[in-house]
């Protein structure tokens, strides 16, 4: 017993102070990508060709990046002859609308808005989430799970993962939704009482991710259920996932979190 107490003393209190302060992200962290339209040469397709998931398409003002398809792999950055693409250190990536994930050069990302008044009344102080892993690589699950540890302590925001759809307010989907998981996802969604929300975590759940061409999968959660929150990444950093969840619940302004992150 004394050893347990001594350990407790040594290990200390380790819950992150977020959202009061932003945890230090690793030096090589790749957050929101930015394309500098001034530096981007005209009629150049190199970045689009380098992208393995066709996340970059040439739009009217230059290359548009679809964060829902992006694997944050850096190949476009390496390919660009002018150094016009960079991944910033901004971890905030979530949106309410699939279309908002497609970013033109220099365009601001329209971050997720909070739920409507009725849903805020129901879920604003208590959101129970059923996680469905539907294909994919278990990478997103790793970083979804980590929010439950004492370092992040999801419970202090009133958010909790639950074991049954009947206890849930939301379904959180990881993976591209394999053909073999379609029925299970439909049944889980149907078993969650109305009103309910769906959260798609990771490139797979948004667009099929690296598997987008495979006929064994359906191309993401919205092929099966209506999605209310998109959290991009491959996998998204736990901070990105938490940021998305807290924005959905309108928690960030309330708790006095800083409003901008330095690039």
């Amino acid at each position: 017993m004394i050893h347990i107490l001594l350990s407790r003393w040594r290990q200390g209190h380790r819950t992150l102070p977020y959202p009061k302060t932003i945890p230090v992200l690793p030096g090589r962290f790749r957050g929101l990508p930015r394309i500098d339209a001034q530096a981007c040469p005209e009629v150049c397709h190199v970045c689009a060709e380098a992208c393995p998931t066709e996340a970059i398409e040439l739009g009217p003002t230059g290359p548009d990046i679809d964060l829902g398809k992006c694997l944050f792999c850096d190949l476009c950055v390496e390919a660009c002859p002018k150094g016009a693409i960079a991944f910033t250190r901004d971890h905030r990536l979530s949106t309410r609308d699939r279309d908002h994930l497609v970013l033109a050069p220099d365009q601001e990302l329209q971050l997720a808005e909070k739920l409507n008044a009725e849903l805020m009344r129901l879920f604003g102080r208590s959101l129970k989430i059923r996680v469905v892993s539907a294909g994919g690589c278990n990478g997103c699950e790793v970083d979804v799970n980590v929010l439950g540890t004492l370092a992040w302590d999801l419970g202090r925001f009133g958010i909790q993962y639950v074991a049954a759809p009947r206890h849930a307010d939301a379904v959180l989907v990881c993976g591209p939704v394999t053909a073999n998981m379609e029925l299970a996802l439909r049944k889980t969604y149907a078993a969650v009482p109305d009103p309910k929300i769906v959260i798609a975590v990771g490139a797979c759940a948004i667009s099929g991710g690296p598997y987008y061409r495979q006929e064994e999968q359906l191309g993401g959660a919205s092929s099966v259920v209506p999605v209310d929150l998109f959290i991009p990444g491959c996998p998204p950093h736990p901070l990105t996932i938490l940021d998305g969840l807290l924005r959905l619940l309108g928690k960030l302004e309330q708790e006095g979190r800083i409003t901008s992150v330095k690039a």
Partner: peptide
């Protein structure tokens, strides 16, 4: 349930993915 066809996708590679 997690089958997404990785081995089949490798055929004809190496590809960018």
């Amino acid at each position: 349930y997690q089958h997404r066809g990785i081995e089949r996708a490798m055929l004809g590679g190496p590809h960018p993915l």
